[in-house]
């Protein structure tokens, strides 16, 4: 559906050339929710803008839905853009238009006759759950409602691809989740390919199938979300994964636990996919002569399975404890001994 080949974007600057995007290659499949994560300045914003021709690559080709976006111009590009919609961090609605009129705007651009336009607007308002707010102005809406208008507007011309530019970064956590659920729902119902950029791993975890990690213009890591969570390679990826799996307090907790338990082992278990749903702890206790104390745990859902971490304290005879750790390892669970006395 989307193919990015050897793409580079170089901006001239006073200190020489600034490589915003540096030799990026990506293939995004039809119907996929693809996430690009990176800190600000990593080049993800420039990258997503090349998918609808708002930015042109210095080198390389960008192909979306069979059209070479990096080559076409004028009316052909405008036609292509009607199939590649975009939603924005700050919504970018026209404040002079009501909700209905904002959603009708792309239909006006596409030249849809007014009666059909009204019908389509009503469908879209139902789809994004804004019934009753049709005649409100954007200034009368909450952030979440504004983004719903943005999504409805983006879907108006039945696009093939939806680009999300930090679409939830200006929203509070609860509203973020409801918007993400709406995006997943749209992806499933309409089979829409979604490309989103974000700096929040939470967003990637919740809805993406695959993720690319960007750092100073380069894609440094690419893979299915679960694989990246299970086995992050780059230091930057590890930091992003920690955003979700290890809340701030975990480190403090671990230190605190080490002070309290002087015998046995404190172990961090990492569960991926199916192993997260097996009764590993029950089996551990039944098969080994050890006591197990659960200290802290968390299971997160991703689009392709669950991912969890669990801190436990295993105590007992030294040999039994070692056996217990081996037992857990044999069950495809990641084991990391935090520290022992």
């Amino acid at each position: 559906m989307i193919s990015i080949k050897n793409v580079r974007k170089i901006y001239p600057s006073k200190q020489g050339q600034l490589k915003a995007v540096d030799d990026v290659n990506l293939e995004i499949k039809e119907g996929e929710i693809f996430g690009v994560i990176g800190y600000s300045g990593a080049g993800k914003s420039t990258l997503i803008r090349m998918l609808n021709g708002l930015e042109l690559p210095t080198d390389g080709t960008v192909t979306v839905a069979g059209r070479v976006i990096s080559k076409i111009k004028g009316s052909e590009l405008r036609k292509a853009r009607q199939e590649i919609s975009m939603i924005f961090q700050h919504f970018n609605l026209l404040w002079s238009r009501t909700v209905s009129e904002n959603i009708a705007f792309p239909l006006e651009i596409a030249g849809v006759p007014s009666t059909q336009r009204q019908k389509r607007v009503n469908e879209l308002i139902k789809l994004v759950g804004l019934e009753g707010r049709e005649n409100a102005y954007p200034s009368q809406l909450s952030g979440g409602q504004k983004q719903r208008v943005g999504i409805a507007r983006a879907l108006a011309n039945n696009p093939k691809v939806l680009l999300c530019d930090e679409a939830t970064s200006a929203l509070d956590p609860q509203t973020t989740d409801s918007i993400l659920e709406l995006l997943v729902d749209i992806n499933k119902r309409l089979g829409l390919t979604i490309v989103l950029i974000t700096h929040e791993m939470h967003v990637i975890r919740k809805i993406c199938h695959r993720v690319a990690v960007m750092e100073s213009g380069k894609v440094v890591e690419l893979g299915s979300v679960l694989d990246v969570f299970k086995n992050p390679q780059q230091p930057i990826t590890k930091r992003f994964v920690q955003q979700v799996t290890e809340p701030e307090e975990t480190k403090d907790t671990a230190e605190h636990l080490l002070e309290r338990y002087h015998s046995g082992l404190i172990v961090q278990l990492t569960f991926i996919g199916e192993s997260a749903e097996q009764p590993v702890i029950t089996n551990l206790i039944r098969n080994n002569n050890v006591t197990v104390n659960i200290l802290q745990g968390k299971i997160s859902q991703t689009q392709s399975g669950s991912y969890g971490t669990l801190f436990i304290h295993i105590d007992g005879d030294e040999k039994e404890v070692t056996n217990a750790v081996d037992f857990i390892r044999s069950h495809q669970v990641g084991v990391e001994v935090v520290a022992n006395d």
């Binding site: 609808n52 708002l54 405008r78 590649i84 924005f88 700050h90 970018n92 507007r153 680009l163």
Partner: peptide, 14 residues
């Protein structure tokens, strides 16, 4: 807001 103009361009507006 520049973003509004960008949004219109992203919709294929002349």
């Amino acid at each position: 807001d520049k973003g509004v103009i960008e949004a219109a361009r992203s919709m294929g507006a002349t």
